[in-house]
Nucleic acid binder design. Sequence first.
DNA 1: ACACTCCTACGACATTTGTAGTAGGATAGG
DNA 2: CCTATCCTACTACAAATGTCGTAGGAGTGT
Lengths: 150, 150
Amino acid sequence: MVREKTVRLTKFELEVMHALWELGNGSVREIQEQLPEKERPAYTTVQTIVRRLEDKGAVRKVKKIGNAFIFEPVVTRKATHNRLIIELLELFGGSARPLMAHLAEAGKLSLEDLREMEGLLAEGQASEPEGLDSKQDRRLSSARRSRPKR
Amino acid sequence: MVREKTVRLTKFELEVMHALWELGNGSVREIQEQLPEKERPAYTTVQTIVRRLEDKGAVRKVKKIGNAFIFEPVVTRKATHNRLIIELLELFGGSARPLMAHLAEAGKLSLEDLREMEGLLAEGQASEPEGLDSKQDRRLSSARRSRPKR
DNA sequence: ACACTCCTACGACATTTGTAGTAGGATAGG
DNA sequence: CCTATCCTACTACAAATGTCGTAGGAGTGT
């Protein structure tokens, strides 16, 4: 087994990671723009979070384009989510049963969901493609970003 | 609908709440002793957490026995767990599907679990008794606790 | 009335998180 | 080569968390 590295991430750090997972890799600017407008913090705030993520070993610089660093995730979305789930499960006694019961009760779980899962389980695997690719970098190549006339 | 109060609790606060839910109600001392030895903090640490929980409105004093206050949960375990689950779900796009997929893949979910759930769902309800009772208080009545000869 | 324990009320402090501002170097268009 | 922008490296700071210690009031057996 590969014992993936997992780090403890805060809510906000998770959001930044989410953005980066979506992008595959990207600059601080791109990450910030990827965040939902509603909760889009200042550029330097994102920069700080990214730096902390780098300290924690959750992301790393892969290259430099112009004078900007391009970051990429080190921890996978899957490993991170797993960790979160494990922690939540512990609160429920380590078993998925009670958790499922809650989901069902909250109406978050339908019979169809269950049957669907059964199908997957029966087949022996339930994996999502985990799209962590698109490592191209045709961007920033030589074009200045938004240029606010001020 | 009763729109239960939910507060944001930290990991440690959750553990204290867990202890209190188990007890039904209890003194700081009892709560501390209810915590797993491995991670049992100093008495005053627990006291501080309880005080903060009180500030947050998650617990309240119900009476005084001797010179000690007896606390009881204000927020239910169910409501709190629900909140946690909701937050986790948001990370997964708000749907239970991806979460279940993770559980299944991590081997935390078996076919039996699924069938069991189906049964419950089919019946129209999946509720656990939510044992928040046992509000007696035959304890501390007049007996000193452990008395370390020093 | 005492001595011994408990308990509570507060205060402290190091970390971690959330959020940003500033100074100064790097770049590209003109 | 100059200038308007970007970007990075730092620094700052308040609020939230994790962890306790201390002072002083209370309750009880003798």
